[in-house]
Design a protein around this nucleic acid. Structure first.
Lengths: 245, 245
DNA sequence: CTCCTTAATAGTCATCACGACTATAAAGAG
DNA sequence: CTCTTTATAGTCGTGATGACTATTAAGGAG
């Protein structure tokens, strides 16, 4: 039997695989980048933390499955506003010691999401500081690292950062998203100038300033604009390794 | 049976899927961007063109399967030098009318690749001009479009363009890669200045200039440098217009 | 009430990348 | 020899950006 079958898949030639989704769900809370993890209750990797995920059901696409998992794990009734992005697919033969599992990984982002409800299966779910995450089960270390890389890179040339913010936010909050994800400090006046000079990135809320909480001068409120990408990009300061600009 | 199983995959809960790889293989020939297609001999989509691909074997990763398919379809004995990049995974339930097939798509690039050998299964394989490709089988139109978008975007911030060039090339050839993939014209002196100012992009061949073929002044030869990414990026000319990219 | 701290906002200034050019050099074609 | 063609060199003005300094408007301590 020719396993290649370029002119039509031979129904008898394929090997069945289990297909799962794994989610790297990020949020910014208390100025800290946090990621949603679940604790495994069974072997292998019992007691280890892992990314939430699960099987793709017979009539689901991976995206649908990921959004269903996201709703289940975060406990939010409406996850339609959360940014969900396919990362890549992990298919190393030995990545799950029990069987052949191909996993489609997703990155998800949200503004200060609520505490997860404990899963009904005695597995606990928790927000954990991204930079304090230890060794995870399976190849989830790598998936998480890839997800963080992708998020960090996308902040540079997309409006993704607003996905980490509530519907109305200050430029200081937006800047903190960048600083939190990148792990760097940014010059406040320059950040402000750059964001406001990028058409469609943010737009001011009609007539509001925020007084109550702040310790300093009240900041103006903005909401996400209509643009999807940033031109020109908002580059990280230390990002250009070799030479820098 | 709970299909979610966050604490350990239940071996009895999963639905088996067929997993395939699909390849969008690009090359630049005669100043034209071409893509490798195969003609289907069987239903569904008999007689239609499709991207080459095939099943992932039991002990293969998707990357391994993609490289194997690449070698088989291009007829090259050594494809280790070709750039292969995972695009994304397509998993819509109805994408194959016969059964549940999840496909991991890859984009591959090479310098003026040879004519493909006709597959032994009566399916013919051919290089086709990218911009003249009609409706393909399955969701391969979308995969091909996504692949082209990705390639075009990666040219901006990576050294990927050298993957389209032979080991030694002139700056004119490199520029033609950009122009061919982007479908735009570029200013030659500015392109030259930009490429040479980017450290690690290209490095001059010790003492060579190319005389024989050219109609004009002989051009200096370069080879790919050691850098993987371009800082700052080499942006498309029409890219920073009003909004999109 | 007054000073001090904090944070937002408003500039300034020099550098540098880049697009749009013009000019020169070195080959082949006729 | 001259024309065409292509590579290469350089110029110039604009605009983005990093590094600063200054001002404004709040709350809190005394």
């Amino acid at each position: 039997m020719n396993p290649r079958a370029p002119q039509g898949y031979d129904p008898h030639a394929f090997t069945p695989f289990a297909v799962t989704v794994d989610l790297a769900v990020f949020t910014v809370r208390d100025g800290d980048l946090q990621v949603l993890l679940v604790e495994r209750g069974q072997e292998p990797y019992a007691g280890r933390w892992a990314l939430p995920g699960g099987f793709v059901l017979p009539r689901e696409s991976a995206e649908t499955a990921a959004r269903r998992e996201l709703a289940e794990e975060t406990g939010l009734s409406d996850v339609s506003g959360l940014h969900l992005e396919q990362l890549r697919t992990y298919s190393e033969p030995e990545r799950d010691p029990r069987m052949r599992v191909v996993s489609v990984a997703f990155a998800a982002l949200g503004p200060d999401l609520p505490e997860p409800r404990g899963g009904g299966d005695a597995a606990q779910a928790q927000w954990r500081p991204f930079r304090a995450v230890g060794a995870l089960a399976f190849d989830h270390d790598r998936i998480l690292a890839d997800a963080h890389d992708r998020i960090g890179a996308k902040l540079e040339y997309s409006c993704l950062a607003t996905s980490f913010c509530p519907p109305e936010f200050t430029l200081g909050e937006l800047q903190q998203v960048y600083e939190t994800v990148w792990g760097t400090g940014l010059d406040r006046p320059n950040f402000r100038r750059k964001v406001l000079a990028t058409p469609g990135f943010v737009e001011p809320v009609p007539g509001g300033a925020r007084l109550t909480g702040g310790r300093g001068k009240p900041a103006a409120l903005y909401r996400a604009g209509t643009a999807a990408t940033l031109h020109p990009p908002l580059l990280r300061p230390t990002s250009p390794e070799g030479r820098s600009r």
